[in-house]
Design a protein around this nucleic acid. Sequence first.
DNA 1: CGTTGAACCTGTTTGC
DNA 2: TGCAAACAGGTTCAAC
Length: 276
Amino acid sequence: MPELPEVEVVVQHLNTHILGGTIQTLTIHRSDIVRTGHDLIPWFHKAKVTHVRRIGKCVIMSCQRSQKTRYLLSELGMTGLWFFKTNLSTSPQHIHCQITLSGAKARELHYWNPRRFGRLWLFETAGLEAFIQRRFGPDALTISLEEFCDLVQSTRGQLKSFLLNQHRMAGIGNIYANEILFRANVHPDAQGHKLRRTSCLRLHQTMQKVLREGIESGGSSIRDFRAPDGSQGHFQKAHQVYQKDGMPCPHGCSTLITRFQKERSSFFCPSCQKKR
DNA sequence: CGTTGAACCTGTTTGC
DNA sequence: TGCAAACAGGTTCAAC
């Protein structure tokens, strides 16, 4: 579910609501949800949350206790959410981790993830750095034009696959890949190294604009996505091609949006999106 | 090294 | 209505 904009929204909420809070309990309800760092769980008792940030589609909470910093990294997968427990509590099923915080920021935070794609990692500094290094390319929101063009031009395969490949560039998922390619008039199957520089430039500009708009709209709530306070995003209202197959192209070319399934569903306008 | 496609999970929607 | 297949925002790992 959550791509870069949704994860960014989650991080903004967490920064507003839990920064400075002290962890009273960190409870794991199924141990296989923690990929590495089981032995660090007790360390987090009485640690203070000092920083929350995003990298790619992951949320990283930095915690401090007795001059040391440890990290709780979470990947949300397709259906993962962090949310605050409320009186109108949801079913306890699929809540795999609970964090209770005390202090001015007293809260109970739940990690909910029915499909369990997405896990948690507990790290010390070296482990976190190694993880980030081996897993993420440059961030899609901040990558420079030059670096982006270099990556695109060294891509033999299809551009949509490139956009989805977190090792090459981090943050984009299926919704935003489709929306970006449509708005930049690039065919999902276009080969990276065949793209003209002008198209490359347009793709870079469009990508960062769409991601920023997604964040400003609070993300895309298609089915499950909610911010930690339960609020929905509304970027789905601005979707032009994602799940719009059979609808007329919003560019007014009178062609219908087409869907094709390879690995992930692609939605595009056969008239507006050219391979080069 | 880069790319592709099946596998991993549960829940909901679609189609016969 | 009932059941099975298709599909869903992601990552991994083996194979090319």
